[in-house]
Design a protein around this nucleic acid. Structure first.
Lengths: 194, 194
DNA sequence: CGTGCCATGTAAACAGTTACATGATTAT
DNA sequence: ATAATCATGTAACTGTTTACATGGCACG
């Protein structure tokens, strides 16, 4: 149940229309909470219904016409309540780790290439986060809000750094088995029932 | 679409009944792909329907009676195909990071306690992974499958280690604002529109 | 006045979670 | 017999994704 709170946060930082929010969920907010425009429009409707946000007054509600929202006091209160709340960390659920485990039983054909591809993607992501830190958080700015935003950014940096290290270890361990188009020839070590 | 492949992997490692699978998804497999028994039973039905697994022959199909499954050649082939496939890493979506960002706009009441709680949980998780490594992966065992399983375990260890470091940084940054039961008094720095 | 883009939305399918229901087996 | 527990399943709901639909506006 975090999407409404992500939207409240984004709108408190800056009142916006649905499409603007969508763009921001492709950037800053989206670096730790992603959402598509369909999710966003639906949730905006619900939040307005619930009285937590409202369209900026003086806007005719016409489909296809831009509609800006702002957060009502009720919305701020709800967000503060949520921040003070509690939620267990969710267990890991990562397809790449699963893929490696599966490779242990059916062989690692085609896996090394995918690992290299992920390595490149994570390198790019890390570089982007570091560019953001250099640009948006020069030493000196130090308000409470700045410090918390930098902290979140460090979360992203730490995660990407973890993946880089792990992928490097993985590329040392995973054998280079090229994908063979024909019949699945298997060595005796990777034998599978039947 | 990873749950069926998680189940195929688990069944290839050892043919099992639904409940056995459920228990294994609370342990080894579950450390990187969690699933509830409802998901598992539903998916077992689909996989059987699709001809990728079958109930061990010689078992009368009665509700409430244990039913063991094994993977058919079709299932192994499908899993191998999936391992060789490709899938972009999913963007980060973490409620705790979002909470910190939200704290930047509505204040950090109640946050520090939650961070400490998470720190303890992650410490426990890391200790468990390290115990598993010491117990199940003594130096010497070194088959292909062992190496890949250890690699996955290192993923878990790396992730928990990241969270520990980040939470320690966070506790340095997040002020100790105790939760006040009454009206939401806010300092000027955390002011919110309206 | 038509084409392209901006902006808001609807619909359907899929995945995951929570709550509940029911039959079979075992121990007392 | 009955209670506890093992084991399999249904149903309803929530959240996410993908594909599609529609209206407004700017520009040639």
């Amino acid at each position: 149940m975090s999407l409404p709170h992500a939207i409240l946060t984004a709108l408190l930082e800056k009142p916006s229309s649905g499409l603007e929010l969508t763009r921001r969920f492709d950037k800053s907010i989206g670096y730790f909470w992603s959402a598509t425009h369909q999710q966003i429009y639906r949730e905006l409707g619900r939040l307005e219904e619930a009285g937590l946000i409202r369209a900026l007054p003086g806007q005719v509600p016409v489909r296809g016409r831009r509609k800006e929202y702002e957060v009502l006091p009720e919305g701020s209160a709800e967000l503060a309540r949520w921040v003070a709340g509690s939620q267990d960390p969710k267990p890991i659920r990562d397809p790449l780790l699963l893929r490696v485990r599966a490779a242990g039983v059916v062989g690692a054909q085609g896996l090394a290439g995918e690992l290299r591809r992920h390595l490149e993607l994570h390198r790019g992501q890390l570089a982007m986060y570091e560019a953001i830190e250099a640009k948006d958080f020069p030493p000196g700015r130090d308000s409470e809000e700045d410090r918390l935003r930098r902290l979140v950014l460090h979360g992203g940096i730490g995660l990407e750094t973890f993946w880089l290290r792990w992928l490097e270890e993985a590329l040392d361990e995973v054998p280079e088995v090229l994908e063979v188009p024909a019949a699945p020839e298997r060595g005796p070590a990777a034998g599978v029932p039947e």
